[in-house]
Nucleic acid binder design. Structure first.
Length: 488
RNA sequence: GGCGCUAUCGUCUAGGGGUUAGGACGUGAGAUUCUCAAUCUUAAAACACGGGUUCGAUUCCCGUUAGCGCUACCA
């Protein structure tokens, strides 16, 4: 390791024109993982040069989403809107060195020409007419107060190439590139300029971003060359697609990280899932018996992450697999760790538990095996934590619609009330003895009692539920069995 | 349309000139029984197509097809 070898500097540079979506979150994650793996630095930069569409609210949401996923950053957030001087001076350098020129074409003119080109089957591309203007002519018009944008003068011939850590060598013919706008006529930089100026100024060594930027890259490479700067290492990450293999969008359902939090997804589960979308640890991710590992902690991911594990093809976002990760994490986490997350769900549902924290923890441990999401604890499982029972009509119809069963349950309540010891063994003996005496099947009573006690057809072992609920609740709920509303 | 990128089970992927092409999610069947889930066992399921190169291609090359991306004074 050479002392002068720079440690990596990477950035996540979201545009605050929307919420943090899953694609952005994954890009952030890969940058974070890379920085942490290499001991590098992660810079957060807000690309808000599109004033019309950017908002502080979106910035807050993006930062929030990152934190939720357990990511932090070392520098920033920097706002491009506050770094306009840098872009102007960079633009000046480009202008001075003859790599850029003023363009006086108006937006309307350009649109017209574009439309005409398209109509006649031509590839719409800026024709470079202002590039032919003499410096004197440009200066005169500028002095006259004419509005001008600044365009980059793309070489007419040759190719622009770069090495991508994921895709390998990529090259574009310069004649395919148009003279793109660097500075808008209002003096605000476009993305093409600001991204290069900032990446250079901030000393970025690696640019890890979505593959939708591949086509933009030659425009940036040209600027690095014009500025006499060395190229960073580009690593483009394939996109995340919806189930129909088109780019993931709202019509596929939830795309914002916030939405997944609100669905009751455990953040670590989401991060695990995201980390494996478009990246895999290869042989390092095998278990001793040759199977692929699926569960990776944050530390595991940091340790294993490398750019060459990134896939080249797009990946479909699979909700089923995410749900599986979620159940795995819920099951694996101790109740203490789940409780704060569940309390959030309760707050969101306006629910206050009527039992002690200790009881809640025990109950969570009992239920987590069956939970699909954190939401379950604030919906179907509410009967365990409070006094109201969320009766599921389907459950009643299935197991508690028989009046005879209801009557038996009420009668059985007295037996439970008389119990001196209330554990799984005695509660089970009690029920089975009662069933035998009445000449009915124990199963019918068990299923009926389950619904009477929990309101649901799905629950852990009935006797574990009884112990969890406690004697007085069990007795009370059994006595109420007859008055449980019948489904229509 | 032009340019670029990509192509292994339905999905996420491993692999790589000779393999029974591996795993995971999901799906089917069975076991279990106190519901459901879990669990265990088990089954079905892939190298897009066509040419090369090679003793031998899923793997390397070319083409086709398909998908995706870019094609703004958005980022």
């Amino acid at each position: 390791m050479h002392a002068d070898k720079k440690s990596p500097r990477v950035r996540f540079a979201p545009s605050p024109t929307g919420y943090l979506h899953v694609g952005g979150a994954r890009t952030a994650l890969f940058n974070w993982l890379f920085a942490r793996h290499t001991g590098g630095t992660l810079i957060l930069r807000i690309e808000d040069t599109d004033f019309e569409r950017s908002s502080d609210e979106m910035v807050a949401g993006i930062l929030d989403g990152m934190r939720w996923l357990g990511m932090d950053w070392d520098e920033g957030p920097f706002y491009q809107s506050q770094r306009l001087d840098l872009y102007r001076s960079t633009a000046d350098k480009l202008l001075a060195s003859g790599h850029a020129y003023s363009c006086f074409c108006t937006k309307e003119e350009l649109e017209q020409r574009r439309a005409a080109a398209t109509a006649s089957g031509q590839t719409p591309r800026y024709d470079g007419r202002c590039r032919k203007l003499t410096p004197e002519e440009s200066a005169r018009r500028l002095r006259a107060g004419e509005a001008a944008a600044l365009r980059f003068a793309v070489p007419a011939t040759g190719v622009t190439r770069f090495d991508d850590a994921v895709f390998g060598s990529v090259e574009f013919a310069n004649e395919e590139l148009e003279d793109f706008v660097l500075l808008r006529s209002d003096g605000i930089p476009t993305y093409h300029l600001s991204v290069v100026a900032d990446d250079l100024d901030m000393g970025m060594t690696h640019i890890i971003r979505g593959a939708d930027h591949i086509s933009n890259t030659p425009k940036q490479v040209l600027q690095y060359q014009a500025l006499g700067a060395p190229l960073p290492i580009f690593a483009h990450v394939p996109l995340i697609l919806g189930p129909d293999k088109t780019r993931l969008s709202k019509r596929h359902g939830a795309t914002s990280v916030t939405a997944y939090r609100e669905m009751g997804i455990v953040p670590e589960a989401f991060r695990n899932f995201l980390g494996l979308l478009g990246w895999s640890p290869g042989a390092a991710g095998k278990t001793a018996d040759g199977k692929d590992r699926e569960i990776f902690s944050s530390d595991d991911l940091v340790q294993l992450f490398s750019l060459d594990g990134i896939a080249r093809s797009n990946a479909v976002f699979d909700n089923d697999k995410l749900a599986w990760f979620n159940t795995e994490y819920i099951r694996a986490y101790p109740a203490e760790r789940l409780l704060p997350l569940i309390e959030q769900e309760w707050r969101a549902a306006g629910f206050t538990p009527s039992r002690s924290t200790e009881e809640n923890l025990r109950t969570i441990d009992l239920l987590k095996q069956r939970a699909r999401s954190l939401k379950d604890f604030a919906t179907a499982f509410l009967a365990y934590f409070g006094d109201a029972i969320p009766f599921d009509p389907a459950a009643i119809a299935k197991f508690l619609s028989d009046a005879a069963v209801r009557t038996l349950l009420v009668e059985m309540a007295d037996r439970y009330a008389a119990l001196a010891i209330f554990d799984e063994a005695t509660t089970e003996q009690t029920l089975r003895a009662f069933a035998e005496k009445k000449g009915v099947k124990a199963g019918g009573l068990i299923n009926g009692a389950r619904v009477a006690l929990t309101g649901q057809a799905v629950a852990p072992s009935l006797f574990a539920v009884m112990v969890c609920l406690g004697q007085s609740r069990v007795v009370q709920r059994l006595r109420n069995a007859a008055s449980v509303p019948m489904p229509i």
